[in-house]
Design a protein around this nucleic acid. Sequence first.
RNA 1: GUGGGUGUAGCUCAGUUGGUUAGAGCGCCUGGUUGUGGCCCAGGAGGCCGAGGGUUCAAGUCCCUUCACUCACCCCA
Length: 419
Amino acid sequence: MIKLIRGFRDILPGDVELWQDIEAKARVLLENFGFREIRLPIMESTDLFSRGIGTDTDIVEKEMYSFPDSKGRGQTLRPEATASVVRAYIEHGFAGSDPVQKFYTIGPMFRHERPQKGRYRQFYQINAEMYGVASPLADVQIMYMLHLFFTGLSVPDVVTHVNSLGCPECRPKFRDALTAFVSDKTDRLCSDCQRRAKTNPLRVIDCKVPGCKEAVEGAPSIQDHLCQDCREHFEAVIKGLDNLSVPYEINPRLVRGLDYYTRTTFEVQTSLLGAQNAVAGGGRYDGLVKILEGKDTPAIGFAIGFDRLAALLGAEEKDFTVPPPLFVAALGAEAQKIAFDWLCAFNAKGLRAEMDYEGKSLKSQMKQANRFRVGHVLILGETELQNNKAVLRNMDTKEQVEVALDGLVDQVIALINQG
RNA sequence: GUGGGUGUAGCUCAGUUGGUUAGAGCGCCUGGUUGUGGCCCAGGAGGCCGAGGGUUCAAGUCCCUUCACUCACCCCA
């Protein structure tokens, strides 16, 4: 048997209804906030990601699905969406018409990691990106929107963590301070952190190993190293969140794995998904457009982990199938012909109806109708043909009413719609 | 890439110190009702016991290898 490749998954009927519901709500919300959909390819030049995300990141170092095309040019299944949106923003000259643009996009991302709970090699994201606004109002609006989305879906157990990572002015200073702090403690750190102390000291203060936690107690905080502008920006964001009553926790140790983030970063976390606690994450990336050879443009955005969100919302219920309202049961070849015509008419008129195509016994058809969890069964046999009246059975109350064959389809639709 | 756990029917799982045709519940099909679902009863279909090799008179069971799933590390959505 040919099976799914590792880390990939099927989203089956019964679950997919939940996904559709989430997606529909996301679209309404995003569009109400002025975000417009942009549909992008899932494959891009490898350079886009290595330059955009940063060559030292885990994503670029070891997680990308990259392979050469027939002429040897590197191409990659996108590991995230932001770089692609920026590419499109630059390539189509949006900055020339109006630098302020808001986009959203929904689709699959690919990362070659070891799969585990809440982590797949193909996973889905809902992304929102906003360009051309340096004001903290953009940060506030983005986070407010995210907050509305999660509360609107009644997502259980989520907390939004906020931090500022500073800018190219102040972050290096913080990094230096941190490196200095960590360098004389390397012997107390785990092997991973000894490596990270050089490559990415920010990660060390985020380490969960008890020895490391102890060693980094009293480490310098980014919050104490922000430059004047970054500090004011962060304070304005926090004030804005308070104004709109958006709950949050300031988390000075919130570090993000992509190089392009500046200033505001945030992550929506849950404790219900095992080790993968981030349901959504994002932040400001004021330098990225320029890095990718566009005009220097501030930007901010977020990604919602669709798979994880669906897991949170689907934890209780298992089957999101919506039952059809009607099943058409026919007895005998003559009746089946007519029943099939009705079926087609019901479907064409927007009433979801089902029938048995095999000429099974009435009992068997009733069982099937019951399995569909339909509200009504329309029965047509020889008796009904003779009387020119079919029988409409309410499956909950067991009440049966006769419906004249003449004009039956509309009559049945009316009966079902009135309950 | 590194560890732990698990692989037996469509699903959830039993399967004794190795012992004949491998079981249950749910689901599915048929019947009990010459035309009425859920409950009940009876019957039925459905398994290369993850794969390969080894030990043995004999392997679902013991050994080795491998693959898959899963959880965790790392990192992130």
